[in-house]
């Protein structure tokens, strides 16, 4: 197997006396769709925050395409090609859908501190932003303020913004939380389409989504990765059943 595109080695994170992540090991292969599941309080969100640069690990190594990223600021990590979404919708509420997406596309083109040209004249950026708006199926809402969108539309925008910076590795934090069954099916289809040639790491509670979308699954329990494997392997794993799936069925 070639070097994993994202790799965690013996990562620990403590907040005071609370040891949330205790020696997590994870290897995500390039191009796969990988889910992290686990009971509430297992540390899934913390794990995402460590990888994306929101927090710095207490110890351990995180590597993106072989390069260490633990301790880097979130903006630097994004520039290295890892982009994340948020569990609680985190958009630019008073800007249009198009402009929300365009901010990320600008970053992809390295247009960051440009005061010398008109935003409307950035042809490639505007075309790509428009294309992405269409891909997340918000073309009809292009000029609507993000704050005025329906909840499921905001979730779609959330994914669009995560993809807009052109990152290779995409982290989605509970992308279908709070959605109806129909909206969830729609969102899964969207994710499958959008991450076709990307690497996806997703935290998700809906097991239908996890088993239907992902190539491999890692189970996080009490801050440790208990098992990693294909959906079939995970389903068959006794430890996993005891720690998590059984608990939910009970």
């Amino acid at each position: 197997m070639s070097t994993p595109v994202l790799e965690l080695r013996d990562v620990h994170k403590a907040f005071g006396a609370a040891r949330i992540i205790q020696g997590a090991e994870l290897a995500v292969a390039r191009g796969e769709r990988h889910a992290v599941i686990g009971p509430n309080g297992a540390g899934k969100s913390t794990l995402f925050n460590l990888i994306s640069g929101m927090f710095t690990p207490s110890s351990g190594e995180i590597r993106l395409a072989g390069r260490r990223i633990d301790g880097l600021d979130a903006n630097a990590i994004n520039r290295l090609g890892l982009s994340r979404s948020f569990q609680i919708t985190n958009v630019f509420a008073r800007m249009s859908v198009f402009e929300n997406i365009r901010i990320g596309v600008m970053a992809r083109h390295g247009i960051r501190f440009d005061l010398l040209r008109r935003a409307a004249a950035m042809r490639a950026v505007n075309e790509q932003a428009q294309a992405l708006v269409e891909r997340v199926r918000l073309a009809g809402r292009r000029d609507t303020l993000a704050g005025d969108l329906a909840y499921s539309e905001q979730r779609a925008l959330e994914i669009g913004m995560t993809l807009s910076t052109g990152a290779e590795v995409i982290l989605l934090d509970e992308p279908t939380a709070g959605m109806s069954r129909e909206e969830t099916a729609h969102a899964v289809e969207l994710m499958r389409d959008l991450t076709k040639d990307k690497t996806l790491l997703v935290v998700e509670h809906d097991m239908d989504v996890v088993f239907g979308l992902c190539d491999r699954i890692s189970v996080l329990v009490y801050g440790k990765i208990l098992a990693t494997g294909t959906p079939a392997e995970i389903r068959a794993d006794r430890r996993v059943q005891e720690a998590y799936l059984g608990e939910e069925a009970a």
Binding site: N90, A93, M95, A107, M161, S164, T165
Partner: peptide, 12 residues
Amino acid sequence: DNEQRVRFMGYD
């Protein structure tokens, strides 16, 4: 609107 999100989109 959202400084945090701007940071996570690759801007210092």
